[in-house]
Design a protein around this nucleic acid. Structure first.
Lengths: 230, 230
DNA sequence: GCCGTTTTGTTCCCACGTTCACAAACTCCT
DNA sequence: AGGAGTTTGTGAACGTGGGAACAAAACGGC
């Protein structure tokens, strides 16, 4: 899915990595962050051990599915006992790659860009917004969430300086492809796109798309069917 | 789907509808809005007819998949010719249920709520924000996007008056379940949830979830693998 | 040390989704 | 009218994902 909702366009390059076991299904990858969040909740509640049933409930999934997902990472549980919450959380964080922070740039500081810049969930979950960029000169200079908005032209320099691998596009639809092209050109290999419409990128670059009105339209479809049925 | 990303938690009630042909797969439903947007783009460009190949390119999917998706709606194309853009667009809009507007309430007018209220894509794609609600009294009375922010307690009255079927939750995580419960209690049957964490709803209520930091974490996973591979 | 209990890790099977490939159907040209 | 060329709609093969069910492993009581 994704689904969803967010969908992944990519080119998982090749299978030439020597490791045999490490081939985590995409559907599982999409759930690992959910488990991570659920585990963080358990840690905060002071719970040190949990069964797959407990964690599955907290994450809103089936326990069999949870166990299968975790088995792709390794055998981090103890039969008859369950999982050590803190240990499992670390293992998942390591697998996802959020044991250290990732630098992120946000391009397009309109309403959505403001909201994203202020979203505390990024910082607390392994992401650091290193720059806010906007092509509109009237917006540059403004400070949002403690970060100064800079000109879009500074993208290349910022990406190089801060080793940015992930870019967020929050511009209008018309600008999205150009922004994506510039991002790719200066070395960004993962893009989260909030602009409506498809953007195309070369192989090796991952794009995930979040489209608010598409989500609502999917709900509307089911809503209509409910109305027609009842 | 995906995940997509937004995932759907529901209970497609029963199969007792008499109609035989109408059973559109969930994956297809999630793509129909994408096709709708692509078709709108073609209309705006003055294109009156297109092949499945053209439309597939515009929508960013495989043409065989597109044709199969459209075949669930009926046979709206002409062999050897293609699809009438405007006609097909109407058929998809009708299938999704966005030929008329849906009333929507947004609860939680923080940064994200502001952005959602100002998002013009809702209005232009079949949705009308009829109310902005917030439990914080210091926020009520403020006007956002031309709509006055009202107290959360007015939810029931607004839903009844404006025949609201879709609710958007943009509150912090802690409040999300309570808001969802209140929404369900007063008759809302579709919820778009931006709050982190899972919310549980009774059968018959659809929930789609959009989680910004989960999307980034999925990107981080692939980013890490790229770094390790190269 | 042995047995019953609990819970994981895994296997098997089914349903869903994607892609290929082709027949059916339409247009255009001669 | 008939044949060549196009493009849709769909049947069939394939791959991925989900869930039930069970064997393996750990713990606890005696």
């Amino acid at each position: 899915m994704s689904s969803r909702t967010g969908s992944r366009t990519s080119a998982r390059s090749s299978n030439r990595d020597a490791e045999p076991s490490r081939e985590i299904p995409e559907a599982t990858v999409a759930r690992l962050p959910v488990y991570l969040r659920a585990l963080t909740g358990l840690v905060d509640a002071g719970i040190r051990t949990c069964s797959s049933e407990d964690l599955a409930t907290a994450a809103g999934v089936n326990s069999a599915k949870l166990r299968k997902d975790l088995s792709y990472l390794g055998s981090y549980g103890t039969r008859g006992v369950g999982y050590d919450v803190d240990y499992l959380r670390y293992q998942i964080a390591r697998e996802i790659g959020v044991t250290h922070d990732w630098s992120v740039v946000i391009v397009g500081i309109g309403n959505l860009g403001h909201a994203l810049a202020n979203y505390s969930g990024f910082r607390s979950r392994g992401f650091r917004v290193v720059a806010l960029l906007d092509a509109d000169p009237s917006r540059t200079g403004e400070t949002v969430a403690g970060i100064e908005v800079r000109a879009f032209d500074e993208l290349e320099q910022i990406v190089a300086t801060d080793d940015v691998a992930i870019g967020v596009i929050a511009t209008p639809a018309g600008a999205a492809q150009d922004v994506a092209d510039r991002m790719v050109a200066c070395g960004i290999t993962s893009i989260l796109n909030f602009a409506p419409g498809v953007i195309s990128v070369p192989d090796g670059v991952d794009v995930r798309k979040v489209d608010l009105s598409i989500e609502l339209q999917i709900l509307a479809y089911h809503e209509q069917r409910k109305a027609n049925a009842g």
